[in-house]
């Protein structure tokens, strides 16, 4: 249990490639923060720098009260769960969990007690004498969790821990990890490329793109007020519709020949990008929409089509009614997001 503070942490590889631009944020005690972004955005590098597996080029990292920049991973009081579990294949589940404690010179009785507690917590008691290869993917992931728990660390680090599991198990483990982290009240840093995982698990999300932080906020902040077109299109499924438009400062946005009123005026005049979440648009209104394709999702259906030649998706409740190709949509003005035409920054 500790607060973690990253101040101006950056990573430049010896070949000059900048993986992470100076980044600063704090993780509060007991908070689970999710780093999310497309592959190559630097989220894993950032996590590995916190873990001590990667050198920090500039900046200062503190876990608890200590500055840990130069400490070995083992001395940072952290535990990490890897994507491919990284269990020692030749050791039993029990020994896998005990290995870190053994190396710290903790006496056997204490280790056994800790391993037992963790195994009970994770329903692994009957598997303690098995080897990782005799376990299923979900069980292995739990062993990896157990190995992290027994160390009773100040900080949990998760490096895409669920991406090797199938979809159903992933949902289940997501809940288990979240519940466990809450229960232990241990600060955690969680890396994923899956925005659903990020939205469902995080206390706060850090969205990264190209080694830079695009936005830091709670899941609902990120969803309600994405800071840029990148965040808008990355977070949310299906992604937000982004349409190039023109804003002349008089309270309406022009999309081709259409004119849409906006709720609050913006400072920037000229080229803008108009963003509308698929679930915010409803059928029946004044905006003409040409329907091309329907994707059935069960309770909902996705209507793919165009508004004035721009691709547009609507997430509508499924009422099993056939739809004409020429529809009208209502786009409530308080759900419209405006972004700068060039920089993509929210206006």
């Amino acid at each position: 249990m500790a607060t973690v503070r990253l101040s101006n942490i950056s990573k430049t590889y010896p070949n000059g490639a900048k993986a992470v631009h100076p980044t600063s944020f704090d993780i509060a005690d007991g908070e689970l923060i999710v780093l999310v972004g497309p592959s190559g955005c630097g989220k894993s590098t950032l996590l590995r720098m916190v873990a001590g597996l990667e050198d920090i080029t500039t900046g200062e990292l503190s876990i608890g009260e200590r500055i840990v920049n130069t400490l070995d991973p083992a001395e940072r009081d952290i535990a990490m769960v890897f994507q491919n579990y990284a269990l020692y294949p030749h050791m039993t589940v029990g020994k896998n969990m005990a290995y870190g404690l053994k190396n710290r010179g903790i006496d056997k009785a204490t280790i056994a007690a800790k391993v037992d507690t963790a195994a009970q917590m994770l329903n692994l008691t009957e598997y303690l004498d098995r080897r990782p290869s005799q376990l299923s993917g979900g069980q292995r992931q739990r062993v990896a969790m157990g190995r992290a728990i027994v160390r009773d660390p100040a900080l949990f680090l998760f490096d895409e821990p669920l991406s090797n599991l199938d979809a159903k198990l992933r949902n289940q483990m997501r809940i288990e990890i979240r519940a466990l982290q809450r229960r232990l009240n241990t600060t955690a840093m969680y890396v994923t490329h899956d925005q659903v995982e990020a939205m469902t698990m995080a206390d706060r999300i850090v969205v990264l793109n190209g080694g830079q932080v695009e936005q830091i906020g709670t899941p609902s902040e990120i969803y309600r007020a994405p800071a840029s077109t990148f965040v808008a299109s990355f977070m949310g499924a299906p992604p937000m519709n982004l349409i190039p438009a023109h804003y002349n400062g008089n309270g309406t946005v022009a999309v081709g020949s259409l004119s849409l009123p906006i709720a609050r005026p913006a400072d920037h005049k000229g080229e803008v990008v108009l963003g509308i979440r698929p679930e915010d648009a409803t059928i029946g209104g004044t905006t003409p929409f040409k329907l091309d394709l329907i994707e059935e999702l069960g309770a909902n259906r996705l209507l793919h089509g165009t508004i004035d030649g721009n691709a547009f998706t609507v997430n509508a409740p499924n009422d099993d009614q056939p739809l004409a190709t020429d529809l009208t949509l209502s786009l409530p003005n308080d759900t419209l997001h405006l972004f700068h035409g060039e920089s993509g920054v929210r206006l």
Binding site: G52, L53, A74, I78, M80, A86, Y88, Y99, N103, R104
Partner: peptide
């Protein structure tokens, strides 16, 4: 990752 896990485990 096995090497890294061992490093974190203090080996």
């Amino acid at each position: 990752e096995l090497v890294e896990a061992a490093r974190i485990d203090g080996a």
